[in-house]
Write a protein that binds this DNA or RNA. Structure first.
Length: 106
DNA sequence: AGCCTGACTCGGA
DNA sequence: CTCCGAGCCAGGC
């Protein structure tokens, strides 16, 4: 198993997130086969920087955008999600109970 | 080789 | 509900 393989897993999971839905780093990590390595998920996405992967649909457990550090990106992400139909509150948080993506919705 | 930082999460206060 | 501390792995210097 190559270390790069883990990254490909993360990208694959993110790509599986349907339009208008968001997921958390922990959830993606778990589905990608990296339980507890949520941090690495964010790290992988940061290194990603590709438009082919909807990294914008990935937020933290609070449903808030953690990009803060990357100037401009956090605002951009919010607008992109809003364009997909995702609602944000005054604090810039998403209602995971509603837009939170479930791997297998019952 | 080691040390520090980081797109995070969880449990407790 | 929010805030704080500890744990986790990988990359950069």
């Amino acid at each position: 198993m190559k270390p790069e393989g883990s990254y490909a897993r993360i990208y694959a999971v993110v790509c599986r997130i349907p339009c208008g839905r968001v997921s958390t780093y922990g959830a993606v990590a778990r589905v990608a086969g990296l339980p507890g390595r949520a941090r690495q998920v964010g790290y992988a996405l940061h290194a990603l920087s590709e438009e082919e992967v909807p990294w914008q649909r990935v937020v933290n457990a609070r449903g808030q955008i953690s990009l803060g550090a990357e100037a401009g990106m956090n605002s951009l992400q919010r607008q992109m999600l809003e364009a997909e139909g995702v609602s944000f509150d005054d604090r810039g948080r998403v209602n995971l109970d509603e837009f939170g993506w479930r791997v297998n919705p019952s």
